[in-house]
Design a protein around this nucleic acid. Structure first.
Length: 397
RNA sequence: GGGUAGGUGGCGGAGUGGUCAAACGCACUAGACUGUAAAUCUAGCGGCUUAAUUGCCUACGGGGGUUCAAAUCCCUCCCUGCCCA
C-alpha cells in the first residue's frame, strides 16, 4: 500500500501524510540513514528509544556485504531487522558517485560555496573504481567487481523489500562539466525507464503472489544547470512513478535554485524527496520550495563524531568549554539522554571513557532533535504561520 | 653488598657523533562531516617571534671531560627497574 495526501499548504510548502503498509509518515519528514539495515551503533532498544519515523537503507552496501539473500529468506528487511518502520532503500546510484568521481574529485555532493563547475572535469579525470557505461555500472570495491544496472537494482530492492525504493541513476559530481551532465542525464533517464519497467513487472508478480507492493520513486538529475534540471524534471515527472527524488550535486549557494528547477516539472500531488540533504538551513530552504521528504547522514554521523544538536546551535561536545557545563544537552528535550538528566559535561566525559555509550546517546538525541525540528515545521505550516519565526529559533536566516 | 638494564617533551617510546625542537603512539586543542569507503578524517601540539616552515632561546637525570661538532664517546655522582646475596 502506498498513498500520499497533502493536507496543508503555505506558499509552496506543504504538509501531508504518507501511508505505507508499515504505517504513516507525516511530512515534511526525514529518513534516518540505516545503510546496513539498522542505524549505526544503536541496538534494538536504542532503536525504540530513538523511534525514527522513517528509515533508509542502502542497496549497494547490503548487496556487497552479502545481506540480500539473508534478507530475502527472512521475508524482507522488516522481518530481518525486526524494525517495523516505514523504510526506503536507495538504489546504489549514489555509490556511483561516492565511490567513483567523488573520490577522484575529492568532493561531497554539496560543494563548499557555489559557482561550480570550476572547469571541465576538474580535480582529476581517472575514475578507476567505477566504470560507467550506457548499460550500467561496474564497481571495483574491496578487490572485487560488482556489476549493477537498473534491472539488477530493482531486483535487489525487491528482495530487500522496503516500502519505498528508488530508480537507479547516476549521481554526478559537483565538479562535473555541463557536457558531462548532459551525457549522464541521458543515461539516468534511460535507466529511469528501465527501472520503472522492471519494477512494474516485479511488483505485479509480488502482488499476485500475495506479497506487498513497493512504491518506486524516480530521480531528477541535471547538476547545477537550469535547462537540464527542468528537462529532467519534466521527463521524470511525466512517468508513472509513485514519487520523486531530487538527486545529484550542486554547490551550497545554488541549492535553492536547483531545487526549484528540479521540482518545476513534477506533478504537485506526488511526494518529493530531496536525496541526501539535511543541514538545518538546507531543510528550511527545501521545505519552503515544496520538498516533502529528506534523508541525511548528518544527525547520526555527527552524533558519532561528538556533535550534538540543539536549538542554540551545534555543540562539538568534546570542546573544553563543555568540561564544566552542568546544563542538560538541551533543556526540555524529551530524548532518552535528556530525560535521564545527562549533563553536557557528563556526555563529554563519556566520549572519553565509554565512547560507544556516548555515541548511542548522542545518536538518539540527534534523531530526536530532527524529529522535533520536523514536527515544528509541520505545525507552522498546518496553522499557516510561524515558519519564519521557527527558522530564527533554529538559527537560520 | 654484587651484577645488570635503563634515565629523552604531559605520558609511552624512537634516535646511538653532525641534516634534532626530537620519528611514531597516546593524551590534549581546534576543525570538518549533506541519497554513510565515515565508531571517520584534517590540522596544531617547548617558549617567544615573523608576511613566511622567518629568526632567536631552552631541552635529552646532575657535574666534568674528549671533539670543529655529543642525546649519542669517556669519567663521576644521583635515581629507577630486574636478578643474585
Amino acid at each position: 500500500m502506498f498513498k500520499f495526501k497533502i493536507e496543508n499548504r503555505v506558499g509552496k510548502a506543504r504538509t501531508g501524510v504518507l501511508k505505507t503498509s508499515r504505517g504513516k509518515v507525516a511530512t515534511p519528514n526525514i529518513a534516518t540513514v540505516a545503510t546496513h539495515g539498522k542505524i549505526r551503533i544503536l541496538n534494538k532498544t536504542d532503536h525504540k528509544r530513538a523511534n525514527p519515523d522513517l528509515l533508509i537503507a542502502n542497496t549497494f552496501h547490503l548487496w556487497v556485504n552479502n545481506k540480500v539473500k539473508e534478507i530475502r529468506k527472512a521475508g524482507g528487511i522488516h522481518k530481518w531487522n525486526r524494525i517495523k518502520k516505514p523504510t526506503m532503500t536507495d538504489s546504489g546510484g549514489f555509490q556511483v558517485f561516492s565511490l567513483g568521481w567523488g573520490k577522484t574529485h575529492k568532493v561531497g555532493k554539496v560543494a563548499k560555496g557555489g559557482g561550480l563547475p570550476v572547469g571541465e572535469e576538474m580535480g582529476g579525470t581517472e575514475n578507476s573504481a567505477v566504470k560507467i557505461t550506457d548499460g550500467g555500472v561496474v564497481f571495483k570495491y574491496e578487490n572485487r567487481e560488482y556489476k549493477l544496472d537498473a534491472e539488477k537494482s530493482m531486483k535487489i530492492q525487491r528482495d530487500i523489500g522496503a516500502d519505498i525504493i528508488f530508480a537507479f541513476d547516476e549521481c554526478t559530481s559537483p565538479a562535473h562539466s555541463r557536457s558531462y551532465n548532459e551525457k549522464s542525464l541521458i543515461k539516468t533517464h534511460a535507466w529511469a525507464e528501465r527501472s520503472l519497467a522492471e519494477h512494474k513487472k516485479l511488483n505485479a508478480r509480488a502482488l499476485k503472489g500475495g506479497g506487498g507492493g513497493q512504491a518506486l520513486f524516480g530521480i531528477v538529475q541535471g547538476g547545477i544547470f537550469e535547462d537540464l534540471r527542468k528537462k529532467s524534471s519534466k521527463f521524470i515527472g511525466s512517468m508513472d512513478f509513485d514519487g520523486f527524488g531530487i538527486g545529484g550535486s550542486f554547490g551550497e549557494k545554488e541549492m535553492g535554485k536547483v531545487i526549484g528547477w528540479a521540482l518545476d516539472g513534477l506533478p504537485d500531488e506526488k511526494p518529493r524527496h530531496l536525496l541526501g540533504i539535511g543541514k538545518i538551513g538546507d531543510i528550511f530552504t527545501a521545505v519552503e520550495r515544496g520538498i516533502d521528504l529528506f534523508d541525511c547522514v548528518i544527525p547520526t554521523r555527527e552524533a558519532r563524531h561528538g556533535v550534538l544538536y540543539t536549538k542554540g546551535g551545534r555543540m562539538s561536545i568534546g570542546r573544553s568549554i563543555f568540561g564544566n557545563d552542568n546544563k542538560l544537552i538541551e533543556r526540555g528535550c524529551g530524548c532518552f539522554a535528556c530525560a535521564n538528566k545527562i549533563k553536557r559535561k557528563d556526555i563529554r566525559q563519556m566520549f572519553k571513557t565509554d565512547k560507544d555509550k556516548a555515541r548511542r546517546l548522542a545518536t538518539i538525541h540527534n534523531i530526536h532533535f530532527y524529529k522535533t525540528l520536523f514536527r515544528e515545521i509541520r505545525e507552522t505550516i498546518a496553522i499557516g504561520k510561524g515558519f519564519e519565526k521557527l527558522k530564527k529559533e533554529y538559527g537560520v536566516g
